[in-house]
Nucleic acid binder design. Sequence first.
DNA 1: TCAATAGATTAGAATTATTCTAACTAAAGA
DNA 2: TCTTTAGTTAGAATAATTCTAATCTATTGA
Lengths: 151, 151
Amino acid sequence: MAKTAPKTRKTVRTPPVTTAALARLRDAGLRPTRQRIALAALLFDGHPYGRHVTAEMLFDEARKRGARVSLATVYNTLNQFTEAGLLRELVVDPGTSHFDTNMGDHHHLYFEDSGELRDVDAGGIEIKGLPATPRGAEVARVDVIVRLRRR
Amino acid sequence: MAKTAPKTRKTVRTPPVTTAALARLRDAGLRPTRQRIALAALLFDGHPYGRHVTAEMLFDEARKRGARVSLATVYNTLNQFTEAGLLRELVVDPGTSHFDTNMGDHHHLYFEDSGELRDVDAGGIEIKGLPATPRGAEVARVDVIVRLRRR
DNA sequence: TCAATAGATTAGAATTATTCTAACTAAAGA
DNA sequence: TCTTTAGTTAGAATAATTCTAATCTATTGA
């Protein structure tokens, strides 16, 4: 094995990988651990228009990239990210939760055959005739899901 | 044990219980078994404005009424009823499916704190600005879920 | 009427999705 | 540096749902 270049410092530094992901974790008050950095990088880096993943999907992806993470940690992390406002949980499919990195106000097209999810910006959409919000309650969010099937 | 009244016929007849439930099963082409009759009666009889149940809820209810049904059968039956167009599956909550006896065109209010679901007739609702249906696809259904929380 | 057959139905067992918690790790204070 | 505390991880446990072998029911033919 080739010898590495001599160290100029004794203190070990975390290598400056995926700065964006790191900053996100810091801002959310989550400790930037190896596992979280890897998952945040997969979720957010290089995906300007958002992603939709299940825990299983993200786990497989992490494994392929050689990250050592358990499926339980992927679940825990997705839930923490959701709690911290980095992700949004989406329930379209009985049996699995999807997580959406797009935190803007939007709705979804759901292709039932393939399972694909596509965002629809809420900007151009108007919903008329919804009943008044019941006393003592407030609207947390309105979800519109257009379910599509192959014709 | 007291002797029962003498039979006037040799042929054994299914007693004329829950005629409405029975008719529904017949129309849907499902064999009216003891389990299905019991579950259909619970779901449809005396609930003119529709019900929202999970498998677990219906199972508990059936047990309380003394019906001998397994939880697996409740799942199977709910799925068969859905397939047959007697029910509609509703996914609002990660982790559980709800089944809705209201087959009319409608949307939902979902109280996140209590888990309560309330129907909103689609008649008075208009959604403007949805994108064009993609090529090769057709709209199976549009779900609007207003998620409410305690204020 | 009765037995044989085919197909539908049931429910215990298996699987899949998710959460829980004990062990581990990192950060903060002395 | 050592100790304490709180956060984090992942194996084990749980919850939700499906699968399939055994059972039951309806039908057909004798």
